[in-house]
Design a binder for these strands. Structure first.
Lengths: 237, 237
DNA sequence: TAGATTGTTAATCGATTAACAATC
DNA sequence: TAGATTGTTAATCGATTAACAATC
């Protein structure tokens, strides 16, 4: 009973499976975005040195990461940006649409709805719910479309009818766990959690967490550490 | 991450000679938040098993992490939640106030301003700027206070006069790099970047990045992988 | 003492890096 | 060919884990 349920699942499998390491997966979206901007800029090929610099990683790491997807480069030449971009998108699953439900229409929820990066990457926001009567029934514009804020009670129906894949929790901390349970019960197995709580979910459900407070605290830590140490080299504005 | 092996022979200061590992630092805010909720709930002590379960990590990892801060537990008993919480806050630098400037007063910028988790953790938002004439001059409420949206031109003055430590960039991708450069020139050395771009900053400036798109793409990856594998191994609840 | 739980060790696992042979 | 750059190797580094002696 002391162990979290989540940690139990991965013990016995003899990893012959050729999965991409998590650290690499976490970098693929960055490579993808930079490649997109290179395509827009009209480049046709790019070397690992150049791409790595644009992505803020070392060339060795970049080549290692890309080699895990396959041999998509040309020695002496570099990578075809369009082709590589397509391979990364395919690997990440961006070549098919993913339907997203957003729970919570506060400031942050509305900011997410109007965030252009979703639609442009193939994510479709199929619904937005909120429990606050003042907010229910109002509209939020998403690009060309308009989204109606639905009452909290219709969450399950929304998930089922839209066949949503991903639930985004943007509620206060107090309601997040209950929302997560309702999402899972309705069939959702991927959750993006913005509430400052650790969610407990059944094995097989994937939760990712975004917490501005945590990021700020880590910055504060480094700021403090810097103040403690005598300034060495560094700094040239 | 320069490391200075300097011996300030203080009895109560734990041996932090080579610094807390990044992976541990990233978890400290989570431990801190859970401890805060335990304090609120009236608990006085907690075991590593229990705390680990609440934080979603393994007990071994938790004890290892905490042992890097010092020996703050009692064998056979556990940890005093108040004391441990204070040690983590001190380690993270939360026992002193940090002043934050927010650049960009769009949906997301305003969501951040009204995010309670900042003030409650000792961060003070000292200013909010935006380049859009329609937005400049409007007000945003932060808890009890009200924040006036300042014009972009006053960014440098704001940073200097408030002695801000941290800059938060919530602008569109196009303007983010320019804003970063202005922040750094004005003396900021810690940046939290919400714009979907990789920022280039001088050595000594710390940048952390939050990107919802990246998180969603990683979820999509796992969702796809799950669909591909005929759940043979991998899953047993 | 007997039971509980920490702090630490040593082994393992995974990720990063430098170097270079392969090859365009 | 000569120069450029990938893909891969092997070494290193860092993080995780299981186990248990220390000790409350």
């Amino acid at each position: 009973m002391s162990l979290s349920r989540r940690t139990l699942g991965k013990a016995l499998t003899p990893d012959v499976g050729r999965g991409i390491p998590d650290a690499t997966v976490a970098r693929l979206p960055i490579y993808g975005r930079v490649l997109t901007s290179l395509i827009t800029a009209g480049n046709s090929t790019v070397s690992s040195d150049h791409l790595a610099a644009l992505c803020g990683v070392s060339p060795a790491k970049l080549r290692k990461d890309l080699s895990l997807l396959g041999s998509y480069g040309t020695r002496g030449v570099g990578y075809d940006v369009g082709f590589l971009s397509a391979q990364i998108d395919r690997e990440l699953g961006l070549s098919r649409p993913w339907r997203v439900v957003i729970v919570g229409a506060g400031n942050l929820g509305r900011a997410l709805v109007s965030y252009r990066g979703f639609e442009s990457r193939g994510f479709e926001i199929v619904g937005l719910v909120d429990s606050h009567p003042d907010v229910v029934g109002t509209r939020v514009t998403v690009g060309a479309r308009e989204l109606l804020v639905l009452p909290s009670a219709s969450l399950e129906a929304l998930v089922r009818q839209s066949h949503a894949h991903i639930g985004v929790i943007v509620t206060p901390a107090e309601s997040a766990q209950a929302v997560a349970e309702r999402l899972v019960a309705a069939g959702i197995r991927s959750i993006l959690n913005f509430a400052p709580v650790v969610l407990t979910v059944p094995v097989g459900v994937e939760v990712r967490k975004v917490d501005f407070g945590v990021e700020l605290q880590i910055l504060a830590f480094h700021e403090q550490r810097r103040g403690e140490e005598p300034m060495s080299q560094a700094m040239h504005a």
